[in-house]
Computed example of a mutant assay.
Amino acid sequence: MTRGILDFLRGGAQAPSPRQRRKLFFERAPDHIYAVGDVHGYDDTLGRLEELIVADARGRAGTKWLVMLGDYVDRGPKSSAVLTRLTTQPLVGIRRICLSGNHEAVMLDFLGNPSTNHQWLRLGGQETLASYGLNRLPADREEQKKLLRSLIPVKHVAFLESLPSMLQVPGYCFVHAGLKKGVAPADQTDADLLWLRPLASDNAAAANGLVTVHGHTPVASVEIGAGRINVDTGIYMSGILSAVRLSRREPPDIIQSR
């Protein structure tokens, strides 16, 4: 158990958030990778998408990973259920790897430093608190912390705190938001990986020989370009949750659920 989570349990003032998140580098990619865009509390839709992915993977030989690109909480009605799914329900035959989004980072900051005017509450945090049964935040800070500790499972906090900010395999770099141009993957900051908005010019060519696969910036349909793939189809506006399958010997394919 990390210092941040102990602080959370004991009511300390220190936010349970790491200074710099881990980055994952793999020298070999699996045969198939499914990358899922921003979920934002839509657990039922995520469940249907996972069923479609498992069915698709069942008919394919080789190793399979599912990479979740972050933003599991906020805006939708079932953020708590999404975190429970990701922490307790593994997928048969598929390795699931979850990355952090900016909404997870802001939620962690709120848990360590709660207040009625915290920016997280304006970014969808109210809906997340409601999914834990907290519809009204008391004015007193100590009361806030006491309620949060009683309602939010430590397992959820530990999960949020442990999420890496990047995953790289040969040919692809998976992040929540994007990569800063001209900076090597190992030197990217969490601020950019979790918050950056990509430019149209980033589509032109792969940077460092890597196609960036990301969410964070909602688009009407999955964008597949030479330099990057955007999988965030804005579920809280469109009702559509999207994934892209990246296979060794096939072009990218899109899987979606409502």
Rank of each mutant, 00 (worst) to 15 (best):
K181F: 06
G215Q: 01
A15N: 07
V244E: 03
I240A: 05
P114T: 01
R58A: 15
R75V: 03
A13N: 01
W195F: 14
V73P: 08
P198G: 10
L91P: 10
A184E: 09
R60Y: 05
V36C: 09
A57K: 00
L108D: 08
Y132R: 03
I240T: 11
L167Y: 02
S79A: 14
I53Q: 01
L163W: 04
F159V: 01
V183F: 15
Q168M: 13
L46G: 01
V169L: 02
H156V: 09
E250H: 09
N117V: 15
V157P: 03
K181L: 08
T2D: 04
I152P: 14
R28L: 13
D187F: 13
Y132T: 04
E223H: 12
R75C: 06
V183S: 07
G12N: 02
V183G: 07
G37R: 04
G101A: 04
K146R: 14
L121E: 11
L160A: 08
L111S: 14
L137S: 06
P30F: 06
Q256I: 04
P251F: 04
V169Q: 00
L246D: 03
F159H: 12
Y132C: 05
G101Q: 00
L194A: 03
G47M: 01
Y72N: 05
A191N: 13
A191W: 03
I254A: 01
D74Y: 01
P218D: 15
T128L: 11
G112V: 07
S17D: 07
I235G: 03
S221R: 06
M107N: 02
P77W: 02
K146Y: 04
L194C: 04
G178A: 00
I94L: 12
R3S: 13
A186Y: 11
L137A: 10
T217R: 07
D7M: 13
S162K: 15
S115W: 15
E161H: 13
N102T: 09
D71R: 02
Q126I: 12
D38C: 11
G47V: 00
P30G: 02
G47S: 00
F8Q: 05
G225S: 15
V169S: 00
G12T: 04
V157R: 09
G4E: 12
A105G: 09
T88I: 05
R141C: 13
A205P: 08
P251T: 06
Q256P: 05
G101P: 05
H156Q: 14
T2N: 11
S131K: 01
K181V: 06
K78E: 12
A184M: 13
R96C: 14
P90H: 12
V231D: 03
T233C: 09
T88N: 07
E27Q: 12
F159G: 05
Y72K: 10
Y236V: 07
G41H: 00
K23P: 00
S201V: 13
L111G: 02
T116Q: 13
R228V: 09
S242C: 02
A243Q: 00
E143G: 07
V92Q: 13
T128E: 10
H32Y: 12
P164E: 00
